[in-house]
Design a protein around this nucleic acid. Structure first.
Lengths: 229, 229
DNA sequence: CATTCATTCAATTGTTTCGTTGAATGTTTA
DNA sequence: TAAACATTCAACGAAACAATTGAATGAATG
């Protein structure tokens, strides 16, 4: 039946249109870091509450995000389906085939040094050998909601003050929210000028989770900066 | 810079909006079978030439399709980038998380028998052992443009007339245009009632190409139906 | 039980997109 | 060089969408 086919195309198109808006893409990125209230999301994307709420409901209709009530606020989180793979393939298509994006990514990220990232599997191997410090430069709230096991949390703004928490003798791997999040880029740029051996992790925390690697949750116990300097 | 970030989101959103229209999704599906003229594509999606042309140019702007001139007509083909992976992840997201799509797919395809498909790698292995006939049920023109090596082409309409070309003693694997193409489902349903041992290949020809498996092109030499019945 | 607060709804306006119509372009054929 | 043909362009009206405003909901607090 042709009608079943056109119904399927209509469904697919609707999902595609849902992620076809910059604000909604940005909302998904923020929501993929952990639960967020509408108020906070509105501030993050620089839009009004009403507008943000409507975009969120649009996303929820397509299952890309879910929500729950917590007291007087509503918290949004990432949907159950393979949302990250969908966005990853969208990004990969864009990087592969759109000159504009290639140009932007090149101009923007490459200028911050050619900071070759370390792969997730490589990091896992290095963690087993205990010869690497994992640095989470996201804000504390996001760190508390979930992190790479054993990671040390030093938000980017506090990095200069808290340099002593980082071992200078072992290599450090920094990560943040995703491939377009600049926090870890800036952390690497800053620490390299101070002589640290530091690299970025490929992509970011949501992709780490999506790839099925272990996650540590809850308020952090004492971080374990094996200070030796 | 926040502006680089928002530029990236704008680019991604534009690509997503490009595939966010049923006609354009359908055009991509048809174009992924091989080169097609605007006239033919217009007929396939049941739209005017002008409208089809505009959708095609929209797709071309995003690199999802490419075009070349051949005499007085313009032929469109699939773009260079990872278009199929993008659509595959879109479809997988939809199937995984949208009840409507799940319902449609279930109602529609499952009713045509639970025809468990054979995987591409399994088919390759079976082909090495020479104990399988590959049946391409697409129209001859598409078959000529590219096919699984060694495949026999019997378009669905001619299947009943040309049953003799299919060996009844070896298992047959049928394929067509893709996961939502009903040709191979119907072929399987038809031949099973006649006692043939026949299964579907997972997905279809574009996905076969995309997965990097060998393709045979050009007008078919004599098909080799190892008739033994 | 009234108030406060976060969120959602409803109505409005300006912008973008879709499909149609008819003319323009550029290539082949007569 | 003119006619035929496939495709694209340009202009239009209808429909969908985005963002704003202000009112409505519904849970928590006093």
């Amino acid at each position: 039946m042709a009608s079943a086919k056109s119904l399927i195309f209509a469904e697919l198109a609707e999902i595609a249109r849902t992620i076809g808006h910059p604000h909604r893409l940005e909302l998904i990125e923020h929501v993929s870091q952990g639960e967020r209230s509408v108020e906070r999301l509105a501030a993050l994307i620089g839009q009004s509450m009403a507008n943000t709420s409507q975009h969120l409901q649009h996303l929820r209709r397509s299952g890309l995000v879910q929500s729950r009530r917590d007291g007087k606020r509503i918290l949004y989180r990432l949907g159950d389906g393979p949302v990250i793979p969908l966005l990853t393939s969208l990004r990969q298509y864009a990087e592969d085939s759109r000159a504009e994006v290639r140009g932007i990514v090149a101009d923007y990220f490459d200028r911050l040094d050619r900071l070759e990232p370390i792969s997730r599997t490589e990091l896992v191997a290095r963690l087993r050998e205990e010869n690497v410090t994992v640095l989470d430069v996201r804000p504390k709230e996001e760190f508390d909601l979930g992190r790479i096991p054993g990671a040390v949390n030093v938000p980017l703004e506090e990095l200069e003050k808290r340099l002593s928490e980082l071992p200078a003798d072992t290599e450090t791997v920094a990560y943040c929210r995703g491939p377009y999040c600049i926090l870890s880029f800036e952390a690497v740029a800053a620490l390299r000028t101070k002589g640290y051996r530091i690299r970025r992790l490929e992509d970011g925390f949501p992709e780490w989770v999506d790839a099925g690697f272990a996650v540590e949750r809850g308020p952090s116990v004492a971080p374990r900066p094996a200070r030796s300097n």
